[in-house]
Write a protein that binds this DNA or RNA. Structure first.
Lengths: 335, 335
DNA sequence: CTGAAAGCGCTTACAG
DNA sequence: CTGAAAGCGCTTACAG
């Protein structure tokens, strides 16, 4: 015999397939004695339900899909762990997709999730995928935005206040006497980058002195930080910054490596403040000051929100939750 | 109308559902003119195939499931990226599950993958799941082991030589004059841990002097490293080690933090060698010497192997590929 | 190259 | 509490 099916289990237990299905999906409807017989038949045959058939008939897929921006960034794996913590209680599988910030890969995963008729999708979007998300929702897949594009008021979202983060980082640099601040990050069209940058500029303006130089990068990893430093060092000495505000910690670590390699002292010559406060920030060569983001909390909050929407798509109200970052001061800015 | 289906597309294009299906799955069988009409009908209706129905009928799921041991460890996300690189060429979705080293979670994902009748599974096992893997294989899901339990000769596998890694790390410590080496990692039943530890002991024996103290931890993260240091410091001063061989870099970073906090100088008082050479090892407070593992290569190799097995489960031969680690010397051991 | 018919394995009302 | 029947949406031989 090939793989055991419902009918085999039913035959062995001496019941109908419908009763086996009820035992699996609505055990309260089945008498304990029957339940027990079915269970031993399942064990004996090693029966494993065919999920495709279940999904097709039931019209729903309990799994939750999550599209993560960059799996190489511990910040996002922390978010994912927060999500897992919540979903595991509900016994829902989490399907992780990594867009690597590439719109094409993001679209591929959206296609997949749409084809699979998932119950819910969590996404930190790369490209403008609002139309796709609307279509998903119209087809019965609930959507919650994580950490980005929360301007889309029609979807619930969880984010962390980037304006506040940009401000407190910049105020800290100004308060410790820095004036020529290079902001390294990109691309500029990411709201994270633009919000943090705008807030930095606003803080400088409010302070009345200082200036922000924007060094745009193509990505947000250590390599981008190293390239950013190259650009800074190409500037005339008089314009060289006395501080770097890196748009995330990976960039900050790259900046730190490149500066150290050139013999430029951190924080004496140039201070560095990072963003995210990933675990590795505190164990860096020069421990990094950083804007701590509650990543895991963001993940668990987003997952809870999503489960609410799934439970009641019609009446659940759209919610936008904004969490607060906080500054963690370490050696990289204590000059 | 609800969501568009094959029959809607067929009606709009003026063909039968069978022809639409052929257009989607075997375009060569359909005339170009019909293909074009079907395509515009698909676009107009926003048709998205129902994957559950496709899977049920076709009896196969192109997706590949991967069970990762610890998504918080950059080593494993590097492996996953290697896998993605290969699968993307084949346009196969990668479904990532994170076991977090918990047997229960591992089993949950195996259940899920089995229910979904996946084409293939890549796994770095936590518990002894050989029986489960055999059953998967017997049901038509190809399996390749990644980085663990390669003693299971019946499944193809890719691993990195842990005996060699343990040896070169220990020989390096001995060559730089260290004699009392604490090996921190665990649990002891992980083959990685036991292989590296045995190799360390063998290297000490071959050298003729020195000793290995095994400090077993419950996990392999920074917290475990910090706890390991507590235990070391509880030892009488005369037995205090002059070197730590950490079973991975996360443990090593925890060890470094805890030692630094106590005012113990690295490498002067105690040298540290880590394992994996994750990106963060080189940017640590004291840059870490580490045994570099070709993580991404392991991932891409495993994925290629898996695709081979899937392409021809009957005749493809079982292969065991072992990659070589290499020692990267940095400041943490240059006393 | 195209279509009518059957069926993948399950679950869902419904009747009893 | 249990079962007979229908059908979820697609693809697969097969006939034409």
């Amino acid at each position: 015999m090939a793989v055991a099916q419902v009918r085999d289990v039913a035959a062995l237990a001496g019941v109908s397939p419908a009763t086996v299905s009820n035992a699996l999906n609505h055990p309260a409807k089945v008498s304990p004695a029957t339940l027990a017989r079915i269970q031993s038949a399942i064990d004996e045959l090693g029966y494993i339900r065919n999920d495709a058939a279940r999904q097709l008939r039931a019209g729903t897929n309990r799994a939750i899909g999550m599209i993560v921006l960059d799996i190489a960034n511990p910040f996002f794996t922390d978010v994912a762990r927060g999500v897992e913590d919540v979903l595991i209680v509900d016994q829902r599988p989490l399907i992780l997709g990594n867009s690597s910030q590439e719109p094409r890969r993001e679209t591929n995963y959206l296609d997949l999730f749409e084809q699979q008729r998932m119950n819910g999708v969590l996404i930190t979007p790369v490209a403008n995928v609002l139309d796709r998300l609307r279509r998903l929702r119209d087809r019965g897949t609930s959507v919650v935005l994580v950490d980005r594009m929360t301007g889309a008021k029609e979807f619930s979202s969880v984010a962390i206040d980037d304006t506040m983060g940009g401000r407190i980082a910049t105020e800290h640099l100004l308060a410790t006497g820095r004036r020529r601040i290079a902001f390294i990050g990109g691309p500029a069209n990411l709201t994270q980058v633009s919000d943090r940058l705008s807030a930095a500029r606003a803080a400088v303006e409010a302070h009345g002195s200082g200036e922000i130089t924007f060094v745009e990068t193509e990505a947000m990893n250590a390599g981008a930080g190293r390239i950013g430093v190259e650009q800074l060092l190409a500037l005339p000495a008089a314009q060289r910054p006395d501080a770097v505000f890196a748009a995330n910690d990976l960039v900050a670590l790259g900046v730190l490596q490149a500066l150290t390699l050139r013999g430029i002292k951190v924080p004496d010559d140039i201070a560095i403040v990072g963003y995210d406060d990933i675990d590795f920030a505190s164990s860096a060569a020069i421990p990094l000051s950083s804007v701590r983001q509650p990543a895991q909390t963001m993940g668990s909050t987003a997952a809870s929100l999503l489960l609410d929407v799934i439970a009641d798509p019609a009446t659940s109200t759209v919610q936008h939750i904004t969490l607060k970052p906080e500054l963690v001061v370490r050696r990289s800015t204590e000059g």
